[in-house]
Design a binder for these strands. Structure first.
Lengths: 207, 207
DNA sequence: CGCCTTGTTGACACCAGTCAATTCACGTGG
DNA sequence: CCACGTGAATTGACTGGTGTCAACAAGGCG
């Protein structure tokens, strides 16, 4: 798939779920006044649309922000799995639970962190998530987002994102050149963001 | 349980999950500087701590904000259910999916709605959720939150919550006296909040 | 009766939004 | 190889929504 393709549209009633194999995608809502809020950033390995299996109708859309390759899993298959493979079902549940943990952290960032801290927190989160799937080299990774898209993710204006990014650069915390983001001082960035890496870690359950 | 009791503490590794039978509870995080963000409001009927079954360690706390009665479900029971009752398992999944839908709406509100719209949206959501469990009379319900707690929910200061509530009153949209909140003009409130009631509705799946 | 929480109000500060112009990075076509 | 076009990044000036601080009112309760 190309850049800026819709994977799911608002109002859809999908009959299959999507696994993101390579590339980045975003989940978002658009308001009447044209403002957009991105509610999730999906990286390779993410089950992008699992809850579409459970809810009636999509209340939001998902689109690629880079060229992507995806896998499709028919809901029928998911149903069979949920009836015959309880431990796989649990894995799906864990996937949803992790999404949920990320959502909670985003809420904390939106509500109670400054734009600076919020941005730092997101970068910490992405470094960790991308490291898990082997997409980092040392403390850097590809961040194929425009500053405007980053603003829609953070709930900030594009102009203010720019100011914040400049400040992060000036303080020697990051470098962001082209699509490559380098975390230059991870510990301090985590400290600023009050980032707790354990919120992404999962219980390794028997079975 | 009394008011302001902890149901779950940050860092806990619970061995049972909680069903809220009567009363209200909140899920929250506290930052170093003392700021608090409430990430979920739980009403009677909610499965408060389902994901504690799936994740290793709680990254947040849950406490009652009214006297509550709760039911405890050992994780062992949940595991048995997940292995032998796929359709019940699905119900649990749906519960998580609904939480997730609410979280996304909160993110949109936090990021892209004004304080006024955000507050209106929350009131619309609560009216609908409480109606589903039969806790409304006409367009009113019990809202046992202080304005400070409401601020921690919305990501606003207590002072600003007060200003917003005054404005909602002045425009004839709500009444809030004691713990009783009355929605006086639901349609207009929904319109202001850009509230879409379908985001809480669920697919009624065979089995 | 006096404390303590909650709600309310006003003055003021500041973070972040908006608007508009400019620069920069690139890709394309002549 | 260079002129242009386009989207992204950057900058500055100004606005405005929300936070902070502080004081006061209104109840509820021991």
């Amino acid at each position: 798939m190309e850049r800026d393709d819709d994977l799911v549209r608002e109002g859809d009633r999908p009959s299959e779920s999507i696994v993101l194999i390579t590339g980045f995608a975003v989940r978002y809502n658009v308001l009447r006044n044209g403002k957009r809020q991105i509610t999730a950033l999906h990286v390779p390995g993410d089950f992008v649309d699992l809850h579409g299996f459970l809810v009636k109708e999509m209340d939001h859309a998902v689109m690629t922000i880079t060229p992507c390759t995806v896998g499709m899993v028919p809901h029928e298959t998911l149903r069979e799995i949920s009836e015959t493979h309880p431990h796989l079902t649990r894995l799906l549940g864990v996937s949803i639970a992790v999404d949920s943990a990320i959502h909670r952290q985003w809420l904390v960032s939106m509500g109670r962190r400054s734009a600076f801290e919020h941005t730092a927190h997101l970068f910490c989160e992405l470094l960790l998530r991308l490291r898990v799937v082997g997409l980092t080299t040392d403390d850097s990774f590809q961040l194929p987002l425009t500053q405007a898209e980053l603003g829609d993710t953070l709930g900030l204006s594009a102009v203010h994102v720019n100011r914040v990014v400049q400040e992060l650069r000036k303080q020697g915390l990051i470098t962001w050149y082209g699509e490559t983001l380098v975390i230059k001082d991870g510990p301090r960035l985590q400290q600023i963001a009050e980032f707790d890496p354990t919120f992404l870690s999962l219980k390794t359950e028997p079975r």
